[in-house]
Nucleic acid binder design. Sequence first.
DNA 1: GTCTATATAGCGATAGAC
DNA 2: GTCTATCGCTATATAGAC
Lengths: 232, 232
Amino acid sequence: MAAARHPPSTAPAGKARPPRPGPGRPKDPGKRQAVFAAAKRLFLLHGYDGVSMEAIAAEAGVSKLTVYSHFRDKEALFGATIRAKCEEMLPPTLFQAAGKGPLQRQLTGIARAFFALVTSPEAIAMHRLMSAQGSGDGRLPQMFWEAGPQRLQQGFAQYLQARVDAGQLAIGDVARAASQFFCLLKGETHARLSCGCAVTLDHRQIDAHVRATVAMFLRAYAPVDDSRRRKP
Amino acid sequence: MAAARHPPSTAPAGKARPPRPGPGRPKDPGKRQAVFAAAKRLFLLHGYDGVSMEAIAAEAGVSKLTVYSHFRDKEALFGATIRAKCEEMLPPTLFQAAGKGPLQRQLTGIARAFFALVTSPEAIAMHRLMSAQGSGDGRLPQMFWEAGPQRLQQGFAQYLQARVDAGQLAIGDVARAASQFFCLLKGETHARLSCGCAVTLDHRQIDAHVRATVAMFLRAYAPVDDSRRRKP
DNA sequence: GTCTATATAGCGATAGAC
DNA sequence: GTCTATCGCTATATAGAC
């Protein structure tokens, strides 16, 4: 609503930029990256309409024309920003180290990490940014989804398939089960955060949510053989 | 930012009600409602920044000043629009007629209705609109959440509690179970739609999703007595 | 190649005429 | 009470100087 006022924030540590021209003359120095970093931060903070090219230039410490020299227009800069964010936000592999210990502990560890990831301010800002960009072109949201959530989900589906093959889980549709697990885990918290509702969870509440999610998943997909053997 | 000084949303019964609806000399004819309807449609379509007051006036068939005579400014009109949408979008009672038949059928019927509701273009537009409005004041998202999703969820929690009391379900935390059911049901489809990804589901896929959700829920929360009696 | 200054346009909100 | 015309402001994008 109100114009985004962001005075030069106090971040002197990250500005290791002495007047060293170096390879500056012939082409583009690191200014392009400065513009890029500024665009990432500001777009995630205030949305597409909430930030002006002048603000990006000021944040990057360059002039407006420099921004326009590196990126054709505002939309191009935005698209490049989103693509870069998609690639840098995804952790290398979340399910690699999770091959030992009891199954419940493995799932709990994965769930904890995933919940922390999707409820992080950065992820929420990203999600809201995609939601905000109305059905403009429609290619950017698809790209975001495939690079972010879908990739995570496929990785988890592979992990689940391995547990199924090992006889630790009884799942008919592994992809659906992975989707269910993630949707349960994001849960109400993610939905509220996406809408802009302030929600604060302490560690106890997060733990209860994670444990309830894993418990429901295991109750639904644990092999039935155990219960049969214990009954008679 | 501040709340509307005069709550004009719903027609007050005791307020000035001109019995002569002629060419509206004394006060406002139905033009206010025309502005309101135009605002609802355009805001849901293009978002807050995407629609101008002039566009709303043109859509309503009135002039800009008429809009300003009925609503103090753009934010007031937006807030009133959101509040009205919240009230009109919620169905009267979704779980009233669901008291007969097998439990699985009841849950399936509820799930089908709820899924159709939350994946409707109107609901998705509403969701995206709330997501788009950055952490401006933060009171509007909360109001939306309480009037929309939370109310639905509480109604479903009451329904679940009745089934628990009847011995048809074994649920420790009913509110959590309701939240889980809804999150499972919204599922990947709602998440993708919220991000702007185009996703098309035919009736077979919707049916499969609904049945999988109900099945998982029942596997997790069905009383164990039934399985004992039916298994051997 | 980069910065200062500017053109152009659109939006929100208002002053006066019918 | 409602419409036409307008002010003030901001943002995108560009033209010329170092």
